[in-house]
Write a protein that binds this DNA or RNA. Structure first.
Length: 785
DNA sequence: GTTAGGGTT
């Protein structure tokens, strides 16, 4: 039996609460030369070293106890029962045999223990001390609905391994639950981990809870998101993204070091939340000290409970204001929702009292069109001075952070903000001061077609819970109204009651690789709450095989193990690993860092229509005849020579935040490569090596020019029909003559099938960089490559 | 020829 640091730490803590206990063990006293009346405090203070003494001694006593009795669990009990008896104690290792008369020996012992003390960290519970909290914050905390059920909640967590906590918005569950549990001493066996689907949420919750505990983030309360770590040895509550928890399972399959895991926003059913579910179900059997809390909106609570062996459901009320529902006389179709939104926004603006309006639209182009139409209509009618003036604020994911921050600025005196938003405003952003919501009833969702490997953005009807969520956005600060551009009966009878969980509509390559690395040899046996499509799993298995991450028998290869170390898509990881051998890893590191950033644009999007030509000119300046990826290297290097200057970025219409993120990712990927002994070498201006490395991951993504501007998949398989086009955001879009052969990093279907991230390659490189795929293709298409 | 739902490792 091995002695874990957590056990000893927990015992030391218990003993601290009962200081006389250990001093009553006569042999221990004798060994330390303490007088009979000495208490525990004396025991360590006499050595002047504090807790490390206790730790060392306890370790020794504990291992003796275990050796003798063979039972770890009864140690405390044994100690209590035997406290007045003789307990066999001899000096612990490092102390040597203690002779109270030998000064040199005791001085040396003290010296050693002082050194040990420097690395000593007290246990989690003893660390959790709440500091000074500002009055205002204190008031906010004490008005949260969850406070009234604090004691019951703690009791329920103590009694159960798994608890489903259901709470409406504004209940305070995300901030208060981890704090309550730490205060109640439930972090004894380890950290309290809380997952969130979004990075921004993990970070801001850590910040908020820190304030509520009178500390600064990174101390008692920390967070970890990809490429950003803000925790310390003091951390008791750790916020993280659900994707990061999945990675932790690779390094720490039993989640030792955690006492409780809280999976928050579980109803969103993100891909990683679903994987966490399956992994947690398993780990609950392996790690008897772990508790799990599934925290969710009211949706699906019974299914969560059933999935976790009928775990009890604990309900917390919310803190929402009443929202009046106003339905339309008829439901609008995909052609008329836009004019419906414009009409409704204008009529609310002219007829309703003060309060901001939030309108949900499916996409950016809708937002831009609606902006124009609302502006032109109100301009004509705004002659009368008594009318509230209006300011239109656009809000969608691809907008820069600065622009998104405009939403949080208070409106100018006498102005009403009209926020035109996509789904960002449904969950990710909470906009203050909204009294009116206009809901068009549609949204866009991506679906991955495993058969063709194409991701498609589809316009869809919102689900019933989504409609409730959108409505709720009007009742955060006061009573509100929601205008729905559909009928009540349609909402009840034709809108779907739930959506497809993300795991059933996404690419599973990285999921399958990660589960394989964790030792789940047969992904089909993994107990998902909702099983992914089997064709998607098969497709992922084959792709991983082509990447040589799995062998013919679908077993993990050393290459696959290496790839899984990187927090990247398997294709990108393969490219990075391959680049060392091709002696161009310095350059490929830059490219992979650029490609791994999504949802942020490299070039500025501000005042798009006005600056379009300038942006194009800037892009042209950095462009490279061999494609977008080589342009990234140009941009990175020039940015570095400009001293990473923000001003330089502005001048060149580049997003400074994007480039800083590239730098951060590049540095961390470089560290990981060093850890795997993958050399980082530059190929100078030899772009062939770089482009060959790209082939190691993107070999399936080749296209051959067919018409003037359109491409066909290469090889021209019957699985993917239709024409591909170079996306207008690519630096290769305006290039003449149109390249006859390209490789793309990404394929996206909107109005057309668009290729993004274009590199000019030689198809013969596939033979050396993706030999397995090459052989397969040659068997089907003798002229391939 | 002309463009982008929301997320994550």
């Amino acid at each position: 039996m091995t002695l874990s640091a957590e056990n000893v730490t927990a015992i030391v803590d218990k003993l601290y609460q009962n200081e006389t206990l250990i001093a009553k063990v006569p042999k221990l006293r004798a060994a330390l030369g303490l007088p009979d009346s000495a208490e525990w405090k004396t025991l360590y203070s006499s050595f002047g070293v504090g807790r490390v003494t206790a730790h060392t001694l306890l370790t020794h006593i504990f291992s003796e106890w275990v050796e003798k009795n063979g039972e770890e669990a009864n140690f405390m009990e044994g100690l209590t029962i035997r406290q007045d008896n003789n307990m066999a104690v001899s000096p612990p290792p490092g102390l040597g045999k203690l002779d109270p008369g030998n000064t040199m020996q005791s001085e040396l012992a003290k010296y050693r223990m002082r050194r040990m003390e420097q690395t000593w960290t007290p246990s989690l519970n003893s660390r959790f001390r709440i500091g000074q909290i500002p009055e205002q914050i204190q008031q906010q905390i004490s008005s949260l609905p969850i406070l009234s059920v604090k004691a019951e909640l703690i009791e329920a967590v103590k009694k159960n391994r798994v608890l489903i906590v259901v709470g409406e918005a504004g209940s305070g569950k995300s901030t208060q639950i981890p704090k309550y549990l730490a205060e109640a001493g439930l972090a004894e066996a380890g950290l309290i981990g809380c997952t969130q689907p979004r990075r921004i949420a993990a970070k801001s919750l850590a910040e908020r809870v820190s304030v509520e505990c009178g500390t600064t983030v990174g101390g008692l309360i920390g967070y970890v998101i990809r490429f950003e770590k803000c925790v310390s040895a003091d951390t008791v509550i750790k916020f993280m993204t659900d994707g990061l928890l999945v990675r932790e399972f690779i390094l720490n399959p039993n989640l030792s070091g955690y006492s409780i895991l809280i999976i928050d926003e579980a109803h969103e059913r993100t891909k990683y939340t679903d994987i966490c579910f399956g992994l947690l179900r398993n780990v609950l059997n392996e790690n008897p000290n772990l508790k799990v809390i599934i925290s969710s909106a009211t949706l699906d609570k019974e299914r969560f409970s059933a999935y976790f062996d009928n775990a009890p459901i604990f309900t917390v009320s919310g803190n929402m204001f009443e929202v009046e529902e106003i339905y339309d006389q008829f439901s609008r179709d995909q052609l008329s929702y836009l004019s419906g939104v414009v009409d409704k926004v204008c009529s609310v603006h002219f007829n309703e009292g003060p309060g901001h309006i939030l309108a949900f639209l499916p996409g950016q182009s809708d937002i831009e069109k609606a902006s124009e139409q609302i502006l032109s209509r109100t301009r004509n009618l705004m002659g009368s001075r008594h009318l509230l003036k209006m300011k239109i604020v656009q809000c969608y994911g691809l907008l820069s952070l600065e622009r998104q921050n405009e939403i949080f600025k208070p409106a100018e005196e006498g102005y009403r903000n009209v926020v035109l938003a996509t789904n960002v405003a449904e969950t990710s952003l909470t906009i203050p001061g909204i009294r009116f919501v206009v809901d068009c009833g549609f949204f866009k969702q991506s679906e991955y077609d495993p058969n063709t490997g194409i991701e498609e953005l589809k316009m869809k009807r919102i689900t019933q819970p989504q409609a409730t969520q959108r409505k709720g956005r009007a009742g955060r600060t006061e009573k509100g109204k929601v205008y729905r551009l559909y009928t009540k009966s349609d909402l009840i009878s034709t809108f779907p009651s739930t959506g497809l969980p993300e795991i059933q509509r996404s690419n599973l390559e990285s999921v399958v690789l990660q589960l394989t690395v964790m030792g789940f040899k047969d992904v089909f046996k993994f107990q998902f709450m909702d099983t992914p499509r089997s064709d998607a799993v098969c497709e992922a298995l084959e792709k991983l095989q082509d990447l040589s991450a799995l062998d013919e028998e679908m077993r993990l290869t050393p290459m696959g193990r290496q790839m899984a170390q990187f927090p990247l898509d398997p294709s990108l990881a393969k490219i990075l690993v391959s680049s060392s051998k091709l002696r161009c890893s310095e350059e490929v590191l830059i490219i992979v860092s650029f490609l791994s950033i999504q949802n942020q644009s490299l070039f500025n999007q501000e005042n798009y229509q006005a600056t379009k030509d300038l942006v194009k000119a800037s892009m042209h300046k950095f462009s490279h005849r061999s494609g977008d990826q080589l342009m990234y290297i140009n941009i990175y290097e020039e940015w570095r020579s400009a001293g990473r200057s923000k001003h330089w970025c502005v001048q060149n219409h580049l997003n400074a935040q994007f480039l800083e993120e590239v730098q951060n990712i590049k540095d961390q990927l470089a560290e990981m490569m060093k850890g795997l002994h993958l050399p980082i070498v530059s190929c100078g201006s030899n772009t062939v090596a770089v482009r060959q490395a790209m082939c190691a991951g993107f070999f399936r993504q080749l296209a051959k020019r067919r018409g003037q501007y359109d491409y066909a998949k290469y090889p021209d398989s019957d699985r993917v029909r239709g024409s591909f086009f170079i996306h207008p955001s690519s630096s290769m879009f305006p290039v003449r003559p149109v390249p006859s052969f390209v490789m793309y990093a990404e394929m996206f279907r909107t109005s057309k099938m668009y290729m993004k991230g274009i590199t000019i390659i030689d198809p013969s490189w596939v033979a050396s960089e993706a030999p397995i795929y090459y052989k397969k293709m040659r068997a089907l298409y003798p002229n391939f490559g």
